[in-house]
Design a protein around this nucleic acid. Sequence first.
DNA 1: ACAATACTTCACCACATGGTGAAGTGACAA
DNA 2: TTGTCACTTCACCATGTGGTGAAGTATTGT
Lengths: 111, 111
Amino acid sequence: MSPARPAPSSLDVVFAALSDPTRRAVVERLRLGPATMTELATPLAASLPALTKHLSVLQRAGLVATAKRGRQRYCTLTAAPLRDAAAWLAEYGAYWDERLGALTTYLKENP
Amino acid sequence: MSPARPAPSSLDVVFAALSDPTRRAVVERLRLGPATMTELATPLAASLPALTKHLSVLQRAGLVATAKRGRQRYCTLTAAPLRDAAAWLAEYGAYWDERLGALTTYLKENP
DNA sequence: ACAATACTTCACCACATGGTGAAGTGACAA
DNA sequence: TTGTCACTTCACCATGTGGTGAAGTATTGT
């Protein structure tokens, strides 16, 4: 991948963030409300260094916002990027309906 | 990641497959109908070795099926796994965005 | 003051990904 | 038969990921 990669789009990092089961579990947990790092780590049986890395990935994807309060770090969901990813996928919900039509068109144009 | 990783779930590989812009472009192109490897590679300015790798990722994710015909390889979308990913996202997106309520409804009514 | 708590940061390691150029394979065309 | 086309496979490389244990940094409790 050496030569001049373009800046990753938001879809890139969002989908990449969601490709890990631990991070999806974090998102699921945060749906119930904010949580600290140890509150996230304990039920997932994840170490704190590992969770710190996961959180930074989720943060880079814009899926999670954090705020330090005292010596604790509170994490909350910021789901706006999920909307973009879902919108991309939603087009393929429409794909199901138009599938036969597209195939028909294709066969008409490529006999 | 050394110690005993569990088998990746289908969501893992589907989201990972979608995290690359070239592969998303392949999916978008295949929405219009089947295509051969060179037909996919040319507009994306991708080399054939690179595209072969991308295709194997998409195939492992169950997003694309291929059939050899003569010396050409025809690729088609098999979008069933996209629905699982969309369903996962819809659950979390619908909480914030009305537009995704429509997707949730769609997935509920088209099981 | 001292110690515990809640994290973070720092090397590391193993492995997967995404790319390359060059060589190999099988089907078709001249 | 000979060559070309459509790919695939083969090293190889650079980078990113996900994990670890150990050490470091604040903040808080006693």
